[in-house]
């Protein structure tokens, strides 16, 4: 690593270029780690290992958000996803007991693999689209730096996107009422209900 940096310095590159190269290699490494972790999620037999790999994947994605100038979203990703949602998953796994699933190579799995491979190739075709004329916004990193990432997002959320914000709060309310009614009133099969 040090020799590599020395080589870079000896090429007489200025500080910005070296920093850009370092950032690009960091994005590459963390992106590859995220892909490997997501492979671990679907290939582990036991759900608890899948949950741990998913936490790793989310932390990698939070680091990538940091590298793409979205500090607030990175914090939200760690707190909400890797914290709250995954703790919920781990509680449910602990409650239901994790049974290892035996794996077999069936025809259905092969069909699914070929279908998803085709989907992946189609998604990669979006990389082959050439440069289009971008519609650039106002929020350059310098502008966002001045007010801070969380405040910039708050201003944007409460001015231009207030309707979607209110709808999201309504959605959370509906979800809370829904899970209370699902968890509190236990389901009885129909034959037991008609008997009494």
């Amino acid at each position: 690593m040090m020799e590599f940096l020395d080589q870079l310095w000896s090429l007489n590159m200025d500080r910005e270029t070296v920093f850009g190269l370092f950032q690009q290699s960091l994005v590459f490494i963390i992106g590859m780690t995220a892909i490997l972790a997501s492979l671990g999620v679907i290939l582990c037999a036991s759900p608890i290992y899948s949950a741990l790999y998913l936490i790793g994947n989310m932390v990698c994605l939070a680091l990538l958000f940091l590298l793409f100038n979205a500090e607030f979203l990175a914090v939200v990703q760690v707190v909400v996803y890797a914290g709250a949602v995954m703790i919920l998953f781990l509680f449910i796994i602990a409650l239901l007991g994790s049974k290892e699933e035996k794996r077999e190579l069936s025809f259905q799995n092969f069909t699914a693999l070929s279908f998803v491979g085709l989907l992946f190739c189609e998604l990669l075709m979006s990389m082959m689209v050439g440069e289009t004329k971008p519609v650039l916004g106002q929020a350059t990193p310098e502008v966002v730096q001045q007010v801070g990432s969380a405040k910039a997002i708050g201003i944007e959320l409460f001015s231009n996107h207030i309707v979607s914000f209110e709808l999201a709060s309504l959605l959370l309310l509906v979800a809370a009422v829904g899970i209370i009614s699902l968890a509190k009133f236990t389901y009885k099969p129909l034959r037991k209900r008609t008997r009494t």
């Binding site: 979203l73 909400v80 916004g137 106002q138 929020a139 997002i153």
Partner: peptide, 17 residues
């Protein structure tokens, strides 16, 4: 981040909710 716009981040926040 590429397009210098905050709309994508708002969208991601709503998706997280």
């Amino acid at each position: 981040s590429f397009l210098n716009s905050l709309d994508g981040q708002i969208f991601a926040l709503i998706i997280m909710t």
